[in-house]
Amino acid sequence: MIKNIFKILFLLAFFIFTVSAREKKETALPVFEQPLLITSAGQGAEVYLASVLAKRAGLNSSLSKIAAPKDMKNIKTLVLVLGASLKGLGSAGLDKAKEKERINLLVAEAQKKNIPILCLHLGGEARRGKLSDEFITFFLPFAKMAIVVKSGNKDRLLSRICEERNIPWKEVEKAADALKPFKEAFK
């Protein structure tokens, strides 16, 4: 009997501890600084959505679909909009490999300059699938924080990556709902 009570108490304590730990993590969301550079990882068109969100949030942002390290001179935050589009890649004169290479350079530059990376996945279910997933699994781990639209995380791929690497992440119902966490993430 006593043993059982101990067990229950122990579990309870563990539960409270984990919950509080998690809550602690959520309160300790990273705070990003402006100005921010928005670019795409995979040339999905949601990069424009991100730009509109930034505008609505009143943030000082610039948009470059094919940003290169030289565009990061006076930048305090790098926003990567995850999601691949074949049409988009073709249009930018890139293929999967070149696009990855481009993002790699950006990420390296960001790490060198200590610029934090914010990852957005706004395309939902439509912006998943083999091609997009490659970009997600490749670049999401570099994020300081991530905001994802719920329908794009049905299989929990994005949240799993974030949890594995202790990246704080927010799930929103629709792309428009990303406005609030996006705004709050900045000073």
Partner: peptide
């Protein structure tokens, strides 16, 4: 209504 956003490719 779920829609997907596509930029018109400039090489098509």
């Amino acid at each position: 209504f779920e829609f997907r956003l596509e930029l018109s490719p400039n090489n098509l």
